[in-house]
Design a protein around this nucleic acid. Structure first.
Length: 923
RNA sequence: GCGCCUGUGGCGAAAUUGGUAGACGCGCCAGACUUAGGAUCUGGUAACUCCGGUUGUGUAGGUUCGAGUCCUAUCAGGCGCACCA
């Protein structure tokens, strides 16, 4: 009986399903372990061979933890809302739900074939009303909250209202988008509508006028992480800046905590660094510059307070709210013309041009330290969204200010000794200050670091400003003008004021529409829905939520997926707590992983959940690239020439489907049948074969290099695929897929099978295993245990191969030996392990076995080889008894015939005995 | 420009964390069994070599009895951020 993976895999997959082998529940008597994969967006293309890499790695870990006695939560679900399904719906008129369900069915089918140990009872789909009820619920909580900067957490907005009633904005400690201040009296005299408008500036989920990334082609706004280099990440369409009233989430209030708590998670340094970059901490000062001949002033942010003596002009962002305050009537026309010009430039155009532009406002500001008047300009190199949207320009020590100053012929005052600013600015934060003292502040002679500190101190003391930390992280824009997303649980009252739906009206189910396009009047697709109103006739919000809404708390929902009373019960959350191991790609570093952490912290603030961070350990699996194959057609013929002969001809390389190529040899018949124009193809062969060329490229349909896991499973079985994907290299590394090596892994499984069966007879006996065999297996136990803990699956697979080869050459047939071996193999190749487990006489699943431990006694050797080196250069090997002490080994090393030759009569200076089974003799 | 990561055979990669570099697999070479092999099995496979050895982990230095591993500089590739004041 040969190793028949087809029957075995089918049989055990069915067994696991029927026995609910992977179902898990809260069990206070057992320690828990939560292993999670980033849930996929079910695209129409299905899985390719790269997708399961992370799933296999996490599956191995989940199975291992279970064998170690942990109660393992290992769920899977679908991030089902998304653009491709909607785009497809627009083209075909088919409801995105239909496409999505088809794709999910396909994914499920593909995943099932790979033998994962998911508890499918816990599956979630973001587009399921039972699921998105809790997405909407969380949004409502955010709507009803503000961020208290003193307590550093979210609090009910009612508490803020109570504060306003008593004290106005004084000491309210609220994170806000507005700079307006008011007294209790003013607040109490406001109308309800006015109050609501004011509160909107404080809510964690708020409706705000913000500059958004507007993608005309997609007809929607996008979050910052959905835009890259001025085009949309999905689709690659141009994105422009536009002022719009949109739902936003006050993620920026959590910037400090998002940054700080990175210390406490086990993520790779590069992902943490990416997040730190994205959050963008910078410590500086806000300083007020009065406007000359006016009672108004400009508030600016700077990290270079030390350069305040070199400020020769001020610059406002074109969108700055200061613009209208400072433009003089003489300059009005020029400013308007400039603003108009800027507005019509897309983000992309601004980036590409990079040319200096700007306009004088006509007003002057007063430098609060020197008292000098300096002109105020407007330029698009200043960003409205960062700091205060206004800067003090120090051309001598900032390259952007320098370029601007040169262009407009503004003075440049060097402030650092030895800095030559005739050609370029001196941006480095080092050197000794000059030109920086007067009766108020003396910086001359200090170094830059001291000067910054001194200036900050002065700014605080003199009241012209204050020390301030700024973050680059912006609030997340939360509205999408799309159909296929979660509806907002918001309606608009008589005054067109947004109001929250009552929680018991959730879920607010996505309505049907006749088309998935915006309305004729330009409203989002939900504008087409009939009766899209509350019970008492108020219109409902027409926007839907973005993709990250549904994916931000799904890991919590898995803990308690069928609960209709809460997102997650306290009981379930207290038990499962947080994800212990999260596996997924790096592409979510600035999106999902920030939003999830924010969402988690918000829920934590209210005590809905018990952990500060959602994902304790994060492993990023690498991307699997494609390995394309080429055939070489001789120009203007239908003749193809093999790789190593192609240089003799004038050829064009043509991508050929990798599925009709094996070890770079082309299946000529299959090629002729592949496409009609190759039907009569002729070939120039080498050694009777047609050898294809190859290249590493992205795996994509157009390169014909997509390898479908279904095909591999069909040909080699899921166990071989699982082992091979792990054997390919470290899980974290990106690497090309190359089916060529898979035979080696497949052979290993066949050999293992051959240890159990010869022809149809079971070979195992009850004889006692030899010391050699015990050593081999216990070495394996030790190695594999260590490898799994450290995620080095590739070396584990190698260790299995070595062990099986050793047992094979020992002709070991002892049943006792194979018990632990099969358990070790179970995480990697669950089907064959399950089969062999039953062959060994067990009638329960191998998933419930106990992970073996190794016995050091078996690993001891009777004779040990030691290398002997002279001055670190390896020379010869000696054999010593295993129980020899250091002195004895040194003596034997010197006594060896080789030593005489290398010492050449000299006395050794010293002899170093090292753990790596090496004796080093220094001469 | 700033930050992070990675450089080891023909290829994917190992290396007990400072201790005999190249485990394991692919490929290749030779052999065995076969009517046949895109099956299976056995042996070999870093380079050079006067067969004693010598040289080898991107490059150049340094620390050390000893460096793929640590330090300094440099080159190359990948990723992230990028008018963030």
């Amino acid at each position: 009986m040969d190793y028949n993976f087809k029957d075995i895999e089918k049989k055990w997959q069915q067994y696991w399903r029927e026995h609910h082998t992977y179902k898990c529940d809260v069990d206070a008597n057992r320690p828990k372990f939560y292993v999670l994969d980033m849930f996929p967006y079910p695209s129409g293309a299905g899985l390719h061979v790269g997708h399961p890499l992370g799933y296999i790695a996490s599956d191995i870990f989940a199975r291992y933890k279970r064998l170690k006695g942990f109660n393992v939560l290992h769920p899977m679900g679908y991030d089902a809302y998304g653009l491709p399904a909607e785009q497809y719906a627009i083209q075909t008129g088919q409801h995105p739900e239909i496409t999505t369900n088809q794709n999910i069915a396909r994914y499920r089918d593909q995943l099932d074939k790979l033998g994962f140990c998911y508890d499918w009872n816990r599956e979630v789909r973001t587009c399921d009303p039972k699921y998105y009820k809790w997405t909407q619920w969380a949004f409502l909580q955010m709507f009803k909250s503000y961020y208290n900067t003193k307590l550093d957490k979210a609090r009910p907005i009612d508490e803020l209202v109570a504060h306003f009633e008593k004290h106005g904005t004084k000491d309210c400690n609220a994170h806000t988008t507005s700079s307006d201040e008011f007294t209790a009296d003013e607040w109490n005299n406001m109308t309800q509508v006015q109050c609501n408008d004011v509160l909107m500036n404080y809510r964690i989920a708020y409706l705000g006028n913000t500059m958004v990334n507007w993608c005309p082609k997609l007809g929607t706004v996008l979050a910052n992480d959905e835009v890259s280099e001025g085009v949309s990440v999905r689709g690659g369409f141009p994105v422009e800046q536009k002022m719009m009233r949109q739902w936003c989430i006050r993620v920026s209030a959590y910037a400090g905590r998002l940054l700080r708590d990175l210390e406490n998670v086990e993520w790779t340094e590069s992902i943490k660094e990416t997040q730190r970059n994205w959050i963008g901490y910078s410590e500086g000062a806000e300083v007020t510059f009065p406007i000359a001949d006016s009672d108004k002033s400009l508030l600016i942010f700077t990290t270079r307070a030390d350069t305040i003596f070199g400020v020769t002009f001020m610059v406002l962002a074109p969108e700055s709210m200061y613009v209208d305050e400072v433009v003089t009537s003489e300059q009005r026309a020029a400013v308007d013309a400039y603003l108009d010009e800027v507005k019509h430039k897309t983000e992309r155009e601004r980036m590409i041009e990079k040319k200096v532009s700007g306009v004088f406002t006509g007003s002057y500001a007063v430098n609060p330290i020197t008292g000098k008047n300096i002109p105020i300009y407007i330029s698009d190199y200043v960003l409205a969204g960062y700091g205060t949207g206004a800067i003090m320009a120090v051309p001598a020590h900032d390259s952007r200010d320098y370029a601007f100053a040169k262009h407009f012929n503004l003075p440049i005052i060097p402030l650092i000794e030895g800095a030559d600013v005739s050609e370029e600015s001196f941006d480095a934060k080092e050197g000794i200050m000059i030109n920086s003292s007067n009766e108020r502040l003396q910086l001359n002679g200090l170094n830059v670091k001291e000067a910054i500190a001194r200036t900050k101190q002065y700014i605080e003391e003199s009241g012209i400003g204050h020390v301030k930390v700024n973050y680059r992280l912006r609030d997340a824009i939360f509205s999408r003008q799309r159909y296929w997303g979660e509806p907002f649980p918001i309606y608009y009252d008589e005054n067109n004021q947004p109001q929250p739906l009552d929680e018991n009206e959730l879920p607010l189910v996505l309505p049907e529409v006749d088309k998935f396009l915006p309305t004729e009047t330009g409203e989002p697709p939900l504008g087409r829905a009939k009766n899209w109103v509350t019970a008492d006739g108020h219109p409902l919000e027409l926007n839907t939520m973005p993709g990250f809404a549904g994916s931000s708390a799904y890991y919590l929902r898995y803990m308690d997926p069928h609960n209709d009373e809460a997102l997650v019960s306290h009981e379930a959350n207290d038990y499962w707590r947080q994800v212990d191991l999260y596996v997924g790609g790096t592409e979510h570093a600035t999106g999902h992983l920030i939003y999830s952490r924010f969402w988690n912290k918000f829920l934590y603030d209210y005590g809905y959940i018990c952990e500060l961070e959602p994902f304790r350990k994060l492993v990023n699996q690498g991307m699997i690239q494609g390995r394309s194959n080429f055939v070489y057609r001789i120009k203007d013929t239908n003749t193809f020439v093999s790789l190593n002969l192609k240089d003799k001809y004038d050829v064009t390389p043509i991508h050929v489907d990798v599925n009709i190529v094996d070890k770079d040899a082309l299946d000529i018949e299959a090629f002729r049948n592949w496409r009609p124009d190759f039907e009569n193809a002729e070939f120039i062969l080498e050694n009777g074969k047609y050898i294809c060329g190859w290249a590493i490229e992205k795996m994509s349909k157009s390169m014909f290099n997509v390898v479908n896991p279904d095909d591999i499973v069909d040909r080699y079985g899921a166990d071989t695929l699982r082992l091979y994907e792990m054997f390919l290299g470290p899980v974290e590394a990106s690497k090309p897929w190359d089916t060529n090596g898979i035979d080696g892994v497949n052979r290993f499984l066949k050999r293992l099978w051959g240890l159990f069966f010869k022809d149809d007879t079971m070979q195992l006996t009850d004889e006692k295993p030899s010391a050699e065999a015990l050593k081999s297996v216990h070495k394996l136990i030790k190695k594999v245990t260590g490898d799994i803990e450290s995620f080095s699956y590739n070396t584990s697979v190698a260790a299995f191969m070595i062990c099986v080869n050793e047992l094979l050459s020992m002709k070991c047939r002892s049943r006792e030996i194979y018990e632990p071996l099969v358990i070790l193999l179970a995480p990697f190749a669950p089907h064959i392990a399950e089969e062999l487990w039953h062959v060994l006489g067990h009638d329960t699943t191998v998933c419930d076995a106990q992970w073996p431990t190794w016995n050091e006694d078996y690993l001891k050797e009777s004779v040990v080889n030691y290398g002997v080196s002279f001055n670190g250069k390896s020379r010869y090997t000696i054999e010593v008894p295993a129980d020899a002490d250091e002195e004895e080994i040194k003596r034997l090393a010197l006594a060896d015939a080789g030593a005489e030759r290398w010492l050449a009569g000299k006395e050794p200076k010293k002899i170093i005995f090292v753990k790596g089974k090496l004796v080093n003799i220094v001469v």
